[in-house]
Amino acid sequence: MALPAATESKDVILEVSNLSKYYPVNQGFFTRQKSLLHAVDNVSFQVNRGEVLGLVGESGCGKTTTGRLIVRLATPTSGRILIEDTDVAEIKGQDMMEFRQKVQMIFQDPYESLDPRMTIFDIVAEPLNVNGIGTFEEREAQVEEMLSLVGLAPPSAFLFRFPHELSGGQRQRVAIARALVVRPSFVVADEPTSMLDVSIRTGIMKLMAQLREDLGISYLYITHDLAVARYLCDRIAVMYLGKIVELGNSEDIVKRPLHPYTKALISAVPVPDPAIDRPLPNIKGGVSKPIDPKPRCRFYDRCPESADSCAEAENPELRDIGGGHLVACHLL
């Protein structure tokens, strides 16, 4: 894939190149031809140290799969993931422990991502426990420190509670504390605010921004909410059916969207002004299934601007159209 040459590898903490993940479907005894669901299809991007990259897209576009591939909860079909210059796919044995301390994930649903039979202390201390970090007293001190860092103060009031005794926002803070207690340098945040009430959401977002400053963490922030992405992220990558269609600085993406899909997404964000008259998004049809997709542009069926030439042409590659703004569209 034609990408601008990687900037100094010193600055790049995560480099994903040509990453693909296909899932076999209707793999029966008698079906000879098996279909493939292209969850993530030839995706490349980088995250620089200290940066927050937002991965935005609708449900089922492969953004969570990308996150799971990066933390190695799934293995890629092809492509490479480099984190601090180590190939994630080739980590084995002892290096795995190191990797788990370096790369962490915050999960979407705080009601499901905490073991209901464990106390808050055991949940937050688990990453330290399984990696054999510190003595019991040290772990306990770290857990308490982390809990107050995420705004659960005083920690002693929370240590021996069970998750069901906490509110959604508090649980997500526990989940964040647990992910950050091993001091990772890179965190995949999979829609950490989407299951929370709007009133709590800003608190968690502020916390994540604060922790990024304090601990120098780089995030891959997966979300379907452009407003959240704009608030938190330095750059935004827009995904559609397993492909990145547009990538650029947050303000660029939001203010000057170029890809028809991004334009439609932006036009769907509510504006808090009743007087504003927005054009209706003129996108056609529903989400197509990413099972054995045609080699042409994934957005072709729904694209309001598609030209006849798009039907025949190969899937467009991401091209730099200046200022680090990358778009995958034939019409630009």
């Binding site: 909860l73 788990r100 994930m105 999960f107 649903d109 688990e126 990696n131 091993v182």
Partner: peptide, 14 residues
Amino acid sequence: VRPYIDAARVAGGS
């Protein structure tokens, strides 16, 4: 298949 099992795996649990 609950997410807390994934979470334990990411934490480094065998």
